[in-house]
Simulated assay, not measured.
Amino acid sequence: MKLPSARGPVSAALIDVLTGRSVTLPSRPALDDSDDLHLTLFICYELAYRGWDGVDDTWEWDPAMLRLRALAEQRFMAALHDVAGPPEPVDPATVPSRLRELADADIGPSLSGYLRGRATYEQFREFVMHRSVYHLREADPHTWAIPRLGGDAKAALIEIQLDEYGGGRTARMHQELFKKTMNWFELDTTYGAYVDQATTPTLANNNLMSLFGLHRRNRGMIIGHLAAYEMTSTQPNRAYGNGLRRLGGDPDATAFYDEHVEADAVHEQIAAHDMAGSFARAEPELAGDVLFGARCALILDALWARDLLASWDEGQSSGRTREMPEAKVLAA
């Protein structure tokens, strides 16, 4: 992936160091700007995924980079506590039912309804562009949890992930299916091609998964995040597929969404009971983390949807140049 353009002094300093234009990272970075914060985090996190063009892989474990990442993570986690409340102890036996309550709660605007019935070709194309930042590496952040689990929870997670990766068949991998949707919109399917255009909420949603997935201490949170995703996926993906068909999308264009309608209807039960429920029973002290991860996933996704719809209501592009009034909630 090509390094993106800086969005503030901290991301600029990080990019300069990674590209050899500077040798020193800021020891006391001012991470007050949410756009700068989330690009900084995204750049740091990508070092643990597929990396950046021209950047040495040894940066992944560089102590100075990890110190900067840790400071940015502290700011992000503090903001998450503000909007979602901190994790609290809960009865492990209630985790599946509480997840169901969270999934059923209406906390955001119906982006899927808009895309199904009203979105223009250009608006749907922008939606796909934003989503590509995650979908071209779909399931990868949650896979970090596999070696950190055991027993029933691990088996359930692997069952979900196996479907996400197409059962070992490249053409059926969800990452590959999404490329077909992008091709229909004549978008660049290169991994990370639209990071520069991604808004703060888009980056924050991606950073949330990495924040949870890359830390063993947050293993309950990444389980809750995945459960929330799987339990709120079927109906929106049906709407996305129907919206694409309304715009003339062919079976290749809708294959990604149609696959999720079928797969996630099964994943919903596996995620709530076999994965999250089993995890909470095995590690009851982290049951509250599961619900916290789910709350964060749903809240940040709702903020992202609200921002996207607001831009279209104003007749504007949803690209990152637009000011987002609620972006301050994504940074402490």
Score class of each variant (00 low, 15 high):
252 D>H: 14
188 D>M: 02
250 D>K: 12
266 V>Y: 06
276 A>E: 12
256 F>S: 05
238 R>S: 12
189 T>N: 10
212 F>N: 06
239 A>F: 13
217 R>Y: 14
205 N>G: 14
267 H>L: 01
236 P>Y: 11
239 A>G: 03
228 A>P: 03
196 D>Y: 06
230 E>P: 00
276 A>V: 08
242 N>L: 10
261 V>F: 09
276 A>N: 08
214 L>V: 02
259 E>Q: 11
203 L>I: 08
182 M>S: 08
229 Y>R: 12
275 M>Y: 07
267 H>P: 01
239 A>W: 14
264 D>S: 05
218 N>D: 11
238 R>Q: 15
182 M>N: 15
220 G>E: 09
234 T>K: 03
239 A>K: 12
250 D>N: 13
245 R>T: 13
259 E>C: 02
201 P>E: 15
275 M>R: 06
220 G>Y: 07
220 G>T: 04
252 D>T: 09
215 H>C: 03
227 A>E: 00
227 A>T: 01
248 G>L: 05
247 L>P: 06
258 D>F: 14
197 Q>G: 00
237 N>M: 01
203 L>G: 11
247 L>Q: 14
198 A>H: 13
225 H>C: 08
238 R>V: 02
226 L>H: 12
254 T>H: 05
202 T>F: 08
248 G>Q: 14
184 W>C: 06
277 G>R: 10
213 G>T: 05
227 A>D: 01
199 T>A: 13
211 L>N: 11
232 T>G: 04
231 M>F: 00
237 N>I: 00
218 N>A: 10
233 S>F: 05
192 G>F: 10
278 S>Q: 12
207 N>E: 10
189 T>H: 13
214 L>P: 00
266 V>G: 02
196 D>G: 02
212 F>I: 01
209 M>R: 15
250 D>T: 13
227 A>F: 00
226 L>M: 08
211 L>C: 08
276 A>M: 07
223 I>P: 03
